[in-house]
Design a binder for these strands. Sequence first.
DNA 1: GTCCAGGTCGCGC
DNA 2: GCGCGACATGGA
Length: 303
Amino acid sequence: MNSSLHTTHLTESPTALFDFETTATAHGWVALRPFEWDATAQALRRTQQLSSGQVVRLTMTADDSSEAEVHITIDSAAPLSATEEDEARRAVRRMLRLEEDFSDFYRLYQQYSDWSLQLKPGEGRLLRCPTLFEDIIYTLCTTNINWRGTIRMVDRLVAALGESVPGQAEWRAFPTAEAIIEAGADFLKRETGLGYRSGYVWELAAAVTEGRLDLGAFERPDYPTATLRRDLRQLKGVGDYAAATILMLLGRYEHLAIDSELRLFVTKKYFEGETPTEAQIRELYAPWGQWQYLAYWFDTPAP
DNA sequence: GTCCAGGTCGCGC
DNA sequence: GCGCGACATGGA
């Protein structure tokens, strides 16, 4: 323990029924640095650089009995300003989707008794990063690579370019867009194993820092999903799969992210080993309308 | 060596 | 619109 660190305790409340552990662990993001799941403590941790430049370490937990509250512990080198504290709260709310409403999804789930989804009350939320910028880069790192490769690339990206909490070299944040720009695409390719994705990541960071791309606009609820999807597809490296994944991260579940993993899953469960066409796959989950992505995600595998 | 991974791009038709 | 090869990298 480093006694020079400041500790701040906060609580946040979800607006609806909430399962903390599933939210943290139900998809792969938790395995990507700087996320960390502490199974013993049932704690989700992430080092994060705030807009002020200060790097903090967030630890999130929730009581077993009361899903009503998320406890946040923030370790920082300097005391948090009110602005920083507010940003940390917003980061947690975004990561855990505390404001999202899944009641329509649950209603459909009750109604579709012939489907075998594995879904308990309060489940449905999938972890995301504090910012869309980070979520998009994670997504780019899942394309045309196996999962170990994704973990490795993100790990090296954080190690190479992430700022750390002063005196805590192992508490390293995800790199800012500015840090990525400064490093350059060649550095990315050489030092992070991003391969040909280096150009995509660098271009995204450039568009953000130069103000050509306003990712904040993509978070607006009144942005029509079709427009959003079209705009996401404009980003280099974002195809149909990545766009659907990013839409999921933005809380829009009406598009399936059809990839090798999904294909394998439905081939085994619904098509008796015969590889289906994309149209057949879409038709399969179509009854779930706005919730197709989650219907697939929480679908149980073939026995 | 070859193939492929929770794909996408740019080309030619 | 559709089909096809190239793309970085590391593991099987």
